[in-house]
Amino acid sequence: MSRLNIELPGLTLKNPIMPASGCFGFGKEYSQFYDLSTLGAIMIKATTVEPRFGNPTPRVAETNAGMLNAIGLQNPGLQKVMGEELPWLAQYDVPIIANVAGSVEEDYITVAKEISQAPNVHALELNISCPNVKTGGIAFGTIPEVARQLTKKVKAISAVPVYVKLSPNVTNIVEMAKAVEEGGADGLTMINTLIGMRLDIKTGKPILANRTGGLSGPAIKPVAIRMIYEVSQAVNIPIIGMGGIQTAADVLEFFYAGASAVAVGTANFVDPFVCPTIIEELPNMLETLGFEHISECQGRSWKKHEQFAYHRA
C-alpha cells in the first residue's frame, strides 16, 4: 500500500513530490538522470504568449544557504511549448502543472486558455509572483483585488483546475490567499522567491545584471513554513508548498505546516537526483514516525487531535 498517494483538484498524484517551476526546464535535462514518471507531477517552466529571452547575465548569485536568480521568464513561447515540449513530456506517466505568466491580463488568458487544453496538463499554476519581470508578474501578486480579478478570469476560461502561485513579498499573505480563493482558485502554490540583492565586494555594484533577484534555497524555508502555517488555517483550498526543500524531513515539515503536496526547486541544481531520493526516503521516514499515510501529517502543527481522529475514522 502506498503511503504517498494524494488527490488534489485535477491531480491524482502517486506521491506529493514535484519539481518546482523554473528549476526543471521542461524536463529534458533531468530525463537523462531518471525516469520522470517517478515524480508526483512536474511544474514546467513559466510559459508566456511570445518567446522571451529573459534578462541579461549574470542571472544568478549565490548567498548563504541560497541563491538569487533573475532569469526573467526565459521561455520558448506558447506555440513551441504546445507543439514540442508538452508532446515530448507526454511519453511519461506524470501529470503536468503548467505555469502561466504574462505582462497584461490578456496574456494570462491567452496562455491559460490554450495550454489548459493540452492532454497532459492537469492543472495550471498562475504565476502572479515572478519578481524578475518589469511588468505584470508581481504587480498581479501584490494587490489582493487585482489578483482576485485575474484568478476569476483565468478560472472562467481554463479547462483544468487553477492553482495560484503566491508571492512572499507582501505585507499580508493571508489577505492575498483569501482574495484568490474568492476569485475561484482551486489551490495555492507558495512561496515564490523573496526579492533580494547582492553587491560585488570589489566594484560595490550589484552582481545581478537585473540588480535584484529572487532568493531561493534552504535560506527561505522558515519563511515558507510560517506563511503556509498561516494561510492553510485561513483558506479551504489545498496548498502545494515550496521554498528550500532538500530532504524528506523538509517535506514533512511543509506538511505539518499545512501543505498537501510539495515542490522542490533549487535543490535540483545541487543534486539532480534530489526528487527521486526524497520519494524513496519518505515511506521509511513515515514508518519511523508512526504515520500510515503522508496525509496524516497535513496541518499537524495547528490541527487539534480530534480532527486527526475524525480523519482516520
Partner: peptide
C-alpha cells in the same frame, strides 16, 4: 556564472550572433 550546469536553470545563456528574432 552557472546554476545547475546541465541546461535546466537558464542562468548561463548567451545570445546567438545570427538572430533575427532576438530570442
Amino acid at each position: 556564472r552557472m546554476g545547475c550546469g546541465i541546461g535546466a536553470c537558464f542562468a548561463c545563456v548567451c545570445k546567438q550572433t545570427d538572430d533575427p528574432t532576438g530570442v
